[in-house]
Design a binder for these strands. Structure first.
Lengths: 185, 185
DNA sequence: GTCTATAATGCGATAGAC
DNA sequence: GTCTATCGCATTATAGAC
């Protein structure tokens, strides 16, 4: 179901699809899961845990800024979308408080991991003291998520993916690697 | 249908839903539209044109940077998502080349409008010459789109929306207003 | 635990009267 | 141009035999 979730989202994935893909009998599935919601809850818990775990790159070895760059520039499959972020636009999933809470929790984990590296980077003098760690963390996660959104819009358009020069690794993140100068208000 | 699109997306909106909401007969609808795809195409064309038109703020009066800030910080209904960007995560819509092309076109328009203001800002010395206009434009559009993604994840979690202090205007964009210091690589 | 059968509902679309 | 009726199919389950 994790595969189907990534391909089609929650609403568009039927228990029947799962049966076909897994070659499992209908009775078996309904014996182990109470229904679609349960199936989704377990899938989502596992998938978001994986996605959140990927942000452990931010805790690895090396200088804070180096770790930030490593995570920011790692290959991402833009056209397939973020396995967690995509769920956010599925109306049926968002209406299910239990399911969306799982997704939100994953983002909390990731944002907090970002925040802590940023605090380190500021302490080390790698980033300006004017940086507000939580806010920058939030913005960086947003850029990544927005990169996926744009990648999906453009990808289906069959344009040469500007950020996916060498498939199968599209990095919608080539952009933030550049220097971004923002107004100081 | 524009309303239903925003609420539920393409896949989850049935022609039947449209009939009920508009209180129009089924025969009438199928007389004026060939089917669901046609209905969607016309809706999407109109909606994305509106969304793209909102970026005309970037062409208004005032200094380039001022216009950028005006557009960036205008109120946005984070929890409802972007009427264009949300479509991007609808698997059924993305598979329809004609439909996703409409969405992609809207983003092209918006990104280009951003790019032109940025070029102006650089020329006026408001932004550093090291800025790559298209890349910054792309990143800014991504931040906005990502802000919607995060807002939807958090909103359903019933947290106090950090960026939506005063409803009904949630501005997932409070973040980019702060200074963002990026590594120069 | 796993199977097949079938329920009840909604989907996208069409038919054909008026 | 608009109406009601209906088609054929998919959906999310549930029933009850094995």
């Amino acid at each position: 179901m994790a595969e189907l979730f990534w391909e089609r989202g929650y609403a568009a994935t039927s228990p029947r699809n799962v049966l076909v893909r897994t070659e499992v009998g209908q009775g078996s599935m309904y014996h182990h899961f109470t229904g679609k919601h349960d199936l989704a809850l377990q899938t989502l818990t596992s998938v978001t845990a994986e996605v959140a775990a990927e942000s452990e790159l931010l805790d690895g070895a090396g200088a804070p800024l180096e770790r930030m760059m490593r995570y920011l520039t790692r290959p991402r499959e833009g056209i397939r979308g973020c396995r967690a972020g995509r769920m956010t636009q599925d109306p049926q999933l968002v209406e299910d408080a239990e399911l969306i809470a799982v997704v939100a929790g994953a983002f909390d984990t990731i944002i907090d991991r970002w925040r802590r590296v940023i605090v380190e980077a500021v302490a080390d003098g790698e980033l300006s003291e004017t940086v507000v760690p939580y806010d920058l963390a939030y913005a960086l996660v947003a850029v990544i998520q927005g990169g996926y959104v744009l990648a999906r819009a453009r990808g289906a358009q069959e344009r040469t993916p500007r950020f996916a020069a060498c498939s199968p690794c599209s990095t919608p993140l080539a952009t933030p690697r550049r220097r971004i100068t923002h107004p100081t208000k």
